[in-house]
């Protein structure tokens, strides 16, 4: 199926809806009118069947599993695209509705990026796209073509030397459980790239898209300021 990269955004979200696919009956591209109508069907379906809600979020297709390349009941097919990740071009099959977090974790083996909420609330999945911190769980992989993506696996120097943010987080004992830490590192790296000498208030604001349930904010923030001092 030809995939039109300009045809992403809300249309692509519409394609996630399983009901729409059966209503539409295959893997042909949908017209905007069909998409609008099928989204309504999907929403109605969710309202009438509470049980469906539990399964309708947080799903992905694992490209390494045999049979995964076939068209699915949902009518979605994978398409081979090139993503530039940590300085390397990576060829990878992705679904239209696939998020960057899923591509990284389940197609490219880059499990350092964590999924805490899968809808842009917690920041555990933060990566850097062209020097800007983005939530990879709410970023479509198809949208990342032509961008330079850096993940937690790509912030160390080529010699394996820790990035100054990573070293500062160790020195300040930033992480506790560590699950949010890759995202915290990425946000701090992006913050300092744009503002090498932030005030503590700027740093707090710059980091505020990353939740830490352990509450390790003070030590992370000290880490950011320490890294900035060594900039």
């Amino acid at each position: 199926m030809p995939y039109n990269d300009n045809d992403t955004g809300c249309e692509t979200i519409g394609r996630e809806a399983p009901d729409q696919a059966s209503a539409h009956g295959g893997d042909q591209p949908l017209t905007p009118a069909q998409l609008r109508s099928s989204r309504r069907i999907f929403i109605k379906g969710v309202i009438s069947s509470g049980a469906a809600i539990s399964a309708s979020s947080y799903v992905f297709r694992d490209g390494v599993v045999p049979g995964a390349h076939a068209a699915t009941a949902a009518g979605s097919v994978e398409r081979l695209i090139t993503l530039n990740i940590n300085g390397r071009d990576r060829r990878v099959d992705v679904l239209p509705q696939e998020t960057l977090a899923h591509t990284l974790r389940y197609k490219l083996g880059l499990t350092g990026t964590k999924i805490g909420c899968d809808h842009g609330e917690c920041g555990a999945c933060t990566v850097i796209s062209d020097n800007i911190a983005v939530y990879s769980c709410t970023t479509l992989s198809h949208r990342m073509r032509g961008r330079k993506i850096v993940t937690i696996e790509g912030v160390e120097g080529p010699d394996g030397k820790l990035h100054k943010v990573q070293q500062a987080f160790i020195d300040e004992l930033g992480p506790q459980c560590g699950f949010c830490t890759p995202g915290q590192v990425m946000s701090a790296v992006a913050l300092l790239a744009g503002n090498p000498k932030p005030t503590i208030d700027e740093a707090r604001l710059g980091m505020s898209g990353n939740l830490c349930r352990c509450g390790a904010y003070d030590h992370y923030l000290n880490g950011v300021m320490r890294a900035a001092g060594e900039a």
């Binding site: 399983p18 069947s49 399964a55 309708s56 799903v59 992905f60 297709r61 995964a68 949902a74």
Partner: peptide, 15 residues
Amino acid sequence: VDELTAANAIEKIKV
């Protein structure tokens, strides 16, 4: 075989 299929299957189950 994958999570999407499992999720679609859940929606076909009548409880």
